[in-house]
């Protein structure tokens, strides 16, 4: 709806003159959380978190998301506490001035796979796996792009050669991406028993990332629906009251008597 309104106003971003250079335009998929009155599919967020944790987290950080953010969204508080305790967090300094390791707490952020960008590039042949916290807001076509990219791996067409260590993916700008195809059928064990097909995992992890980028979306839309409904009533009142107060002015009859 937002994209449609922007396009309607003629304000949409840059025109893609060259699809090889800018990446293939992704299709618009019917996301269950897309509409004005739609909330996230929270079971899908939970499955998506499992995909992130078991697949993506090996290379991609999610620096803006803390364990506490997951509580009440896709896990219970006890579940998240148990999950957080599985990691070691360096804290301190203690009374003797030393840093120490402790189990993770709700207030800790999800652990990053690499200490810094240099380390990430060194481990990935010079490529830097971006932080995923805002990925669906930070790319053209957002979640559709992420979904298309995850499922977009194929053999390069005749005449296109891809450098050693890169992989052909028409949705990626330039067509050659350092990330290999990561999602394969059965690649993840879902705790709700959903069959982990490639497309299922792509959908779930994209939903999870859409939530990570816009965790306020459910609250925002609910507040918007309430506020705009109330304001519409105010608008009716305002128009009625204005017309009522103006009626003497509007009903005046001005007579121009040119003779006398």
């Amino acid at each position: 709806m937002g994209v449609a309104s922007a396009a309607l106003l003629g304000l949409a971003g840059v025109a893609h003159a060259d699809e090889a250079e800018h990446g293939l335009h992704s299709a618009a998929y019917p996301w269950p959380h897309e509409g004005m009155f739609d909330s996230y599919d929270h079971a899908s967020i939970r499955r998506g978190h499992q995909v992130y944790q078991q697949v993506c987290a090996a290379c991609h950080s999610l620096n803006l998301v803390a364990y506490r953010n997951l509580v009440g969204v896709c896990y219970t508080e006890d579940e998240v506490k148990a999950m957080a305790e599985e990691i070691e967090v360096t804290d301190g300094p203690d009374d003797t001035g030393e840093m120490f390791d402790r189990p993770g707490k709700l207030s800790d952020r999800l652990p990053a796979p690499y200490a810094n960008e240099e380390g990430a590039r060194y481990a990935n042949n010079g490529a830097y796996p971006p932080d995923l916290s805002l990925i669906t807001k930070a790319r053209h076509d957002g979640q559709n792009y992420v979904f298309s990219l995850l499922l977009g791996y194929r053999e390069p067409p005749a005449g296109v050669s891809v450098r050693e260590g890169l992989h052909y993916n028409p949705y990626f700008p330039g067509g050659a991406i350092a990330m290999p195809k990561m999602l394969v059928d059965g690649g993840v064990e879902y705790d709700d028993g959903t069959p982990a097909t490639e497309t299922q995992m792509a959908k779930d992890v994209t939903t999870f990332l859409a939530w990570a980028a816009e965790p306020e979306a459910d609250d925002r839309k609910l507040m918007g629906a309430k506020f705009m409904f109330a304001l519409s009533l105010v608008a009716v009142q305002a128009v009625y009251y204005k017309r009522w107060m103006w009626s003497p002015i509007k009903a005046r009859r001005l007579v121009v008597n040119a003779v006398h």
Binding site: A6, A138, A213, R220, G224, L231
Partner: peptide, 24 residues
């Protein structure tokens, strides 16, 4: 009031429609 409705639509339902993704 009419303008507030127009403004609210962007805030609540299309908050990033007028922005650019690269700024994230």
């Amino acid at each position: 009031v009419i303008f507030a409705l127009f403004f609210s639509f962007f805030i609540y339902f299309a908050p990033n429609a007028l922005g650019h993704p690269d700024n994230y």
